[in-house]
Write a protein that binds this DNA or RNA. Structure first.
Length: 976
RNA sequence: GGGCCAUUAGCUCAGUUGGCUAGAGCGCACCCCUGAUAAGGGUGAGGUCCCGUGUUCGAGUCACGGAUGGCCCA
């Protein structure tokens, strides 16, 4: 006895041993792992070895380089892409990922201008562009570092950037091709214009501030009623009536070309001292108060009409379509158009429409010009020069040369003279001002280059239906947009971009653009980038053309000037299918590529610009499928904003939890809708990460003495529980694979979680610990469990790769060589090179699974029963208990009979199990508990035999072992 | 203001063609263990399925209306 107690039995156990740390230490460990990937050239090696395999190309949409930081939304996007390419790569595809960046555009230009002392005109355009380029490239470095730290793999050595000389050259070529095909035309479109700075302004460059404007009501007499759908009597009523408009910009009246009416509103024709007037019913009272004298108001109230006026007739807005009015002071017709944009907020419900001076006016006129006015379109009239002075086009001689704002009182005079002015007052409202000079800006139509959508709209719509849109609703979204969109305005009055490669003869503004010139510019741009457009004059740019062409174009005789507008950045990124994919055909294959994956806002943006340009060039969509994700909101579903203080910064998440936790979050949410993130969410993901990590750690720790080549146990010799666990593994592998194929990563997350928490930690590991630790190292049933653990590892490790590549690598690097999966006979340098596990049909056993469902419900009953003695302090851990089972169904007793007593003890994790056929006499135990249900009754009580000090199980043999009086027979064998 | 979408336990998600006493994992509470140990096990409490109104024998599931939030437009 004395002798025995000297023995430290703990040292005779097979306790877990592993160098794999419980804590990730992600902040440093992940960086080490990324360094390993870089040094081992993992991505490059894979690409080289796979270049014969079937391609799966996910083409990256380029983020803006206006900052070196990345947002959580960008992180979501890049991680999703990475999960996709990693998974597909494991499935054996050749999956190149070329990261892209959008380096042109206003945000960059403005950010640079902000830092120029003395404003943008203090430096040359060439210099400004140089700084923009430097700024963009510096930001690229920053973003790249951030993307790589997310664990995103790809062709970082050679990303694509829209400011690359070659990219820009291709863009010139593409523009030339579209011009040649007749898709490009020059038109007029209103833009914000600052007459003081004499420049166009982007939306982002106007600031709103108070401004005192006129508020005037003007009569437009009816000229022609023939084309209205009205009955004759109503036509007659209208012939000598007038429509009343309200405007705050009298100076735009010379540019009036139409009136707009809302087809849904009701309009009243009323008598007044100005004759018969037409005004929206709902606005009549307000209109009356403004334009009538108190006496008149009183009089009308006496008349007792429903409104302040005496209504003669009422019309639905739509009945007035086709009505033609006369301009109050210019000999011109002003037709009535139907417009949904007409509101009842203010005015008369009839809107003065000057398409050259307002965006909504422009759009409604464009709409009519495409349809009803196709044969006789309205012009986009904008009779002001660059400095805001009236031109001849205004058709009012006294306004010629007058600045627009001084034109206001003059127009009022003219209206008065024509007796067309019903009312004039001043009022203050919010009005756009120039961000630089802070003076009010105007809308002014300028010449711009457009793409004529009509020519290929039907083809585009057809192309949309060749694409798989995920989620499906995306199809309708983009279809409706393309179906209803207007022409694409390509021109931007900026500096930082690719120029519209057009020359004009200075004498008559005739356009010069030919395939030869485009080819020449292509070569120039390829060498010098688009910078050369600003560095050289038109003559210099064309100096290299062959002599015969120079003669043909009249160079040297007629002076040429360059177009100075640049292209819309959506055109830049829209043609990446050509400037990137087609240009790297060897690497990226033929168009269309497999997948575009962006936020759902890109239905209007990149998906569309890519589609339209691709249809124009190739008459097909550039992608086979389009997958979209929603936006990232805070934990309560609000948009993130600095002012709310609810912004989640990906870098701080990585610092606190590591990139894999962030990636796990990405995988856990249903990204097809908007997703939420916050402290709580991240903390929870960290818990999941830890659980997975510890599950693997348990496996590694218990495989320290296992060599699969020597110790593996054949399937037939595995216990029922072992085989069930393999079945579960297989089942979950199937679900996971299916989830990845559908891009439903949240299902993957749930499956992995369930496997680790329920199947393994709470069940298999918990009950096999006794075997692993206490059996002799080489005991068959211990080797069997290790065989299962090894099978688990071989499947779990590779499936961790797409979402948590750092974790997978960390595991891989701590594996002994003998346990590493071999690919072509060699263990790969990185876990990320492991193939996706193949399903193993041998492990699938539906019958066994069904049987186990029942056994597990018995286990559940046992657990419930054990709570009885435990709550009374009679037992602690389950091993201190024994149970008597009384099956209430034949199936249950049959099943229990299939397990040996020792297997029963293992499954229920107790010291003894007996299966009774009749209720036992439990009187000696006043602490028994019986749990009904589960088709079994369970009687739980403390084990009666002495406890083995080695394995902590109570057993009748304790005390009978020679030389080891404190241990049981199994332990005795293990020790001896 | 228009188009599209979402809303099931504190969190992340399941809920097939209407049959649910609405599930899972986490988190939480309580208990146990101390040989996976800044780990592990067990039990349990949590839900007017956003709100109305319909259709139906029966609605988380279908229809209509509304609220809130999001994206895109105006």
């Amino acid at each position: 006895m004395q002798e025995a107690s000297v023995i430290n039995y703990k040292e005779t156990l097979n306790l877990p041993q592993t160098a794999f740390k419980m804590k990730a230490g992600a902040a440093t460990r992940e960086v080490e792992i990324e360094t390993h990937w870089d040094e081992a050239k993992v991505y490059e090696t894979l690409m080289t070895s796979r270049n014969k395999a079937q391609k799966f190309v996910l083409h990256d949409g380029p983020p803006y380089l206006s900052s070196d930081k990345i947002h959580i939304g960008t992180a979501l996007n890049k991680i999703l892409k990475d999960v996709v390419t990693r998974y597909k790569s494991q499935q054996g595809f050749y999956t190149p990922y070329v990261p892209g960046y959008d380096g042109h555009g206003l945000p960059i230009e403005n950010a640079v201008v902000k830092n120029i002392k003395g404003g943008r005109h203090a430096i040359s355009e060439v210099e400004l562009r140089k700084r923009c380029r430097e700024f963009a490239l510096a930001n690229l470095k920053g973003q790249e570092t951030n993307f790589k730290r997310l664990g995103v793999w790809g062709h970082w050595e050679k990303p694509y950037i829209t400011i690359d000389a070659e990219f820009e050259a291709t863009q010139i070529k593409v523009f030339g091709k579209l011009y040649e095909k007749g898709f490009v035309y020059k038109g007029l479109k209103p833009v914000y214009w600052c007459p003081t700075c004499e420049t166009a302004l982007a939306d982002a460059e106007v600031e709103y501030g108070d401004h005192a404007s006129h508020s005037i009501y003007v009569k437009f007499p009816v000229k022609n009623v023939d084309k209205t759908p009205l009955e004759a009597q109503f036509k007659t009523l209208l012939t000598d009536a007038s429509l009343v408009i309200w405007t705050t910009t009298p100076w735009t009246l010379p540019a009036n070309l139409a009136l707009a009416i809302n087809p849904e509103f009701t309009y009243h024709l009323v008598k007044s001292r100005w004759g018969k007037l037409l005004v929206a019913e709902k606005l009549l009272p307000a209109f009356a108060k403004v334009v009538m004298t108190p006496e008149e108001l009183a009089e009308y109230e006496l008349i007792g009409s429903t409104d302040d006026f005496e209504a003669i007739a009422e019309f639905e807005g739509r009945e007035l379509e086709g009505l033609i009015t006369r301009h109050p002071f210019i000999d011109r017709e002003s037709p009535v158009l139907m417009g949904e944009h007409v509101t009842l907020d203010a005015g008369t419900g009839i809107v003065h429409t000057a398409p050259g001076h307002g965006m909504e006016d422009y759009l409604v006129v464009q709409q009519y010009n495409r349809e009803q006015f196709k044969d006789n379109p309205l012009p986009i009239l904008s009779p002001l020069d660059n400095s805001g002075k009236f031109t001849e086009e205004a058709l009012v001689p006294e306004l010629l040369g007058v600045p627009y704002h001084l034109g206001n009182p003059m127009v009022l005079e003219i209206l008065r003279a024509q007796q067309a002015l019903l009312h004039d007052s001043k009022f203050t409202h919010s009005y756009p001002h120039c961000w630089r000079c802070h003076k009010p800006v105007i809308y002014r139509a300028t010449e711009q280059w457009f793409i004529d959508i009509e020519q290929f709209r039907p083809d585009s719509l057809k192309a949309i239906d060749t694409v798989q849109w995920l989620p499906e609703r995306g199809r309708n979204r983009i279809f409706n947009m393309v179906e209803g969109r207007g022409d694409w305005c390509l021109s931007r009055q900026r500096v930082w971009g690719v120029p519209i490669p057009i020359f004009y003869y200075e004498d008559n503004r005739e356009v010069l653009i030919t395939p030869e010139i485009i080819a020449h510019l292509y070569e120039l741009f390829k060498v010098h980038s688009s910078d050369i457009w600003w560095a050289q004059s038109a003559e210099e740019l064309l100096a290299g053309l062959p002599e015969n062409l120079k003669v043909q174009y009249g160079l040297g005789q007629r002076k040429l000037i360059k177009e100075m507008d640049i292209m819309d950045v959506w055109f830049d990124s829209g043609i990446t299918h050509t400037a990137v994919v087609d240009a790297r055909k060897d690497e990226l294959g033929e168009l269309p590529v497999e997948l575009y994956l962006e936020g759902s806002d890109q239905h209007r943006g990149w998906f569309q610009s890519s589609l339209l340009t691709s249809v124009m060039l190739y008459n097909k969509a550039p992608y086979k499928s389009v997958l979209t994700h929603g936006f990232v909101l805070d934990e309560s579903g609000r948009k993130m904003s600095k002012s709310l203080g609810n912004v989640v910064d990906p870098n701080s998440v990585i610092k606190e939890y590591g990139a894999d936790v962030l990636r796990l979050w990405v995988a856990s949410v249903d990204y097809t809708n908007d997703v939420r993130i916050g402290k709580n969410t991240l903390h929870q993901m960290a818990e999941v990460y830890k659980k997975v990590r510890n599950t693997v750690r348990f496996i590694l720790g218990n495989l320290y003495d296992f060599d699969p080549a020597q110790h593996s146990v054949p399937y037939a010799e595995l216990s029922m529980l072992d085989r069930y666990t393999l079945h579960r593994l297989q089942h979950i592998l199937g679900n996971i694979t299916d989830a990845f194929e559908q891009w439903e990563f949240n299902r993957y997350c749930h499956e992995i979680q369930y496997l680790c928490m329920a199947d393994l930690s709470a069940l298999y590991f918990d009950v096999t610990k006794d075997i692993l630790y206490c059996d002799a190292a080489n005991a068959p049933r211990r080797r069997a469990v290790q065989t299962v653990l090894y099978a688990l590892l071989q499947t779990i490790l590779p499936v961790l790769v797409p979402v948590t590549p750092h974790l997978a690598e960390d595991i891989w690097l701590s594996l002994p060589e003998a346990q590493k999966t071999k690919v072509d006979g060699v263990a790969p340098v990185s876990a990320t090179l492991l193939p996706w596990p193949q399903p193993n049909a041998q492990y699938v056993n539906a019958e066994l699974a069904q049987q186990f469902e029942t056994l597990l419900s018995v286990k559940e009953a046992v657990n419930q029963a054990l709570e009885g003695p435990r709550s009374e302090g009679k037992i602690g851990k389950s091993l201190e208990a024994q149970v008597i089972l009384l099956p209430e169904a034949v199936a249950v007793s049959d099943l229990l009979g299939q397990l040996t007593p020792s297997e029963q003890e293992v499954l229920f994790n107790v010291s003894a199990v007996s299966v009774a056929t009749a209720p036992p006499d439990v009187t000696p135990f006043d602490w028994h508990t019986r749990v009904a249900g589960n088709e079994v009754a369970v009687y739980a009580m403390p084990a009666i035999h002495a406890k083995c000090v080695r394995c902590w199980k109570s057993d009748a043999a304790v005390g009978k072992m020679p030389g080891h009086p404190e241990i049981c027979e199994r332990c005795h064998q293990a020790v001896e």
